[in-house]
């Protein structure tokens, strides 16, 4: 997987992304980052929101698995009770791994949420959260 894609976004209210992270192994290397791809990823993720809202009604679980795809890019989604959406753009990770990843990120997210100074519409800027998400990604996706 030379050019694996792994982008994680938390979308809050009114479709505002409150957290974005490129979790692919190449993300650490800024020179390797493909800017065009970043545009495309955002577009695909944003477009997938429609699909997420459609799929919401088909299941009672928070994890929606793959909701949308564009060419070879898949979008998996997880929706919290407050209708905050976790989206993961990937190129065919196992659904189990994605599910576990979402579940663990959700735990971390809840901790952020419990911060009395955090408003759910604000961007998540906590470096600890960022670090934990990246660790989880490494654990589950071996990036």
């Amino acid at each position: 997987m030379g050019t694996s894609v792994l982008t994680f976004v938390i979308v809050g209210h009114e479709d505002h992304p409150i957290y974005e992270a490129d979790l692919s192994p190449k993300a650490a290397d800024p020179a390797a980052r493909d800017e065009r791809a970043q545009y495309l990823h955002q577009f695909v993720l944003h477009a997938a929101l429609d699909a997420v809202e459609e799929q919401l009604w088909n299941t009672t679980s928070m994890h929606l698995s793959v909701v949308d795809k564009f060419n070879n890019l898949l979008v998996s989604a997880f929706v919290t009770a407050a209708n905050v959406k976790f989206l993961l753009l990937h190129d065919g990770r196992s659904d189990d791994a994605v599910k576990l990843f979402f579940k663990d990120v959700y735990e971390v997210y809840l901790k952020v949420l419990m911060n009395p100074f955090f408003t759910p519409t604000a961007r998540i800027t906590s470096p600890a959260f960022n670090q934990k998400v990246r660790t989880l990604a490494r654990t589950y996706f071996r990036t």
Binding site: D15, H16, P17, Y39, Q42, F43
Partner: peptide, 13 residues
């Protein structure tokens, strides 16, 4: 659809 939603790359594009 995109404006003001803070999808920075999209808006930039």
């Amino acid at each position: 659809v995109y404006a003001g939603r803070q999808w920075s790359f999209i808006e930039e594009h």
